[in-house]
C-alpha cells in the first residue's frame, strides 16, 4: 500500500527524518510513536502526499509520490482516509454534509443510506444537523473518522486522534479503528499515548514503530 525506501525529509535545518524505510501492507495495523516534534505528523504527511521526500522514494499504491501530479495526489487521497488531531471541517456545513464531503468532491451524491449507517456507527445520530463548532472534542474526532472512512478507503491514517479526548472516548475511537482494521483496512495511528498502544495490542495484532534520532525503528518488548 505505502512504502518508504530510505526516505529523508527536513524543513531546512537538517533532516527531521533520515533513511526511513517501512512498508504498510494491506490489512496491517501500525502505531507510530515518539516524542513531540520527532516527526510523526511529517511521516504521515509523506504517506498521503502532502509532503514530498527530500531523498529516497515514497511509494503510494505502487506509484512514486514524486512523479504524481496534483490531480493524481487527489485520487490517492480518495484511497487514504486521514484523521487529524485538530480535525478540520467546513464550519458552514452540517456534520452530515462534512462527513459526506469526500463523496461530494468525487462527484457522487451522498445519499441518506450512505451516511445514515455511518453516522450511527460513530454515534452521532443526534448531531447530524449540527455545525462542527457545536461539537465536543470527542464528537469532532468521531465525525472526522466517519469522514475519513466514508469513501471506504484502503488506508486510514490517524494523527493523535485521542489527543483532545478523555480515556473513555479514546477507547471508543480505538474500538472503531480496530473494527475498520478487521474489515481489511490498513491502519496507522500516530500517538504518544503508550496506554492506548498497550490497550490496542490486546485487541489487535499491531506493530509499533518509534521515531528516535530521526530514524524509524521497531519498538521494544515494553510496547
Amino acid at each position: 500500500m505505502i512504502e518508504f525506501d530510505e526516505v529523508s525529509y527536513g524543513y531546512g535545518g537538517g533532516p527531521l527524518l533520515a533513511d526511513v524505510s517501512l512498508r504498510l501492507a494491506a490489512g496491517s495495523f501500525h502505531f507510530l510513536t515518539g516524542p513531540s516534534g520527532a516527526g510523526k505528523t511529517t511521516l504521515l504527511k509523506l504517506c498521503y502526499g502532502e509532503l514530498i521526500a527530500s531523498q529516497g522514494r515514497v511509494g503510494l499504491f505502487g506509484e512514486d509520490a514524486r512523479s504524481l501530479g496534483r490531480d493524481d495526489i487527489a485520487m490517492v487521497r480518495r484511497r487514504i482516509g486521514v484523521v487529524h488531531q485538530d480535525c478540520q471541517f467546513l464550519d458552514h456545513l452540517t456534520v452530515a454534509e462534512n462527513i459526506g464531503l469526500p463523496l461530494t468532491v468525487s462527484g457522487r451524491t451522498a445519499t441518506e443510506e450512505d451516511l445514515g449507517e455511518l453516522i450511527h456507527w460513530v454515534g452521532l445520530d443526534g448531531q447530524r444537523q449540527s455545525r462542527p463548532p457545536e461539537l465536543s472534542g470527542g464528537e469532532r474526532q468521531r465525525a472526522a473518522l466517519a469522514r475519513a472512512v466514508v469513501m471506504s478507503p484502503d488506508v486510514i491514517l490517524a494523527d493523535e486522534p485521542t489527543g483532545n479526548v478523555d480515556w473513555d472516548m479514546s477507547l471508543r475511537l480505538l474500538k472503531l479503528l480496530v473494527e475498520l482494521n478487521r474489515m481489511g483496512k490498513t491502519v496507522m495511528i500516530a500517538t504518544h499515548d503508550l496506554n492506548l498502544i498497550r490497550t490496542a495490542k490486546q485487541q489487535v495484532q499491531a506493530r509499533v514503530l518509534r521515531i528516535a534520532s530521526h530514524r524509524v525503528q521497531l519498538a521494544g518488548a515494553d510496547l
Binding site: R70, D71, A74, M75, R77, R78, V82, Q88, F89, L90, L101, P102, V105, S106, R147, M151
Partner: peptide, 16 residues
C-alpha cells in the same frame, strides 16, 4: 485557505 486545505485532504481535484 482552510476550506481549500479540507477539500484537498478529502481528495478534491484542483478543477473542482
Amino acid at each position: 485557505e482552510q476550506v481549500i486545505r479540507v477539500l484537498r485532504l478529502v481528495g478534491a481535484r484542483d478543477a473542482y
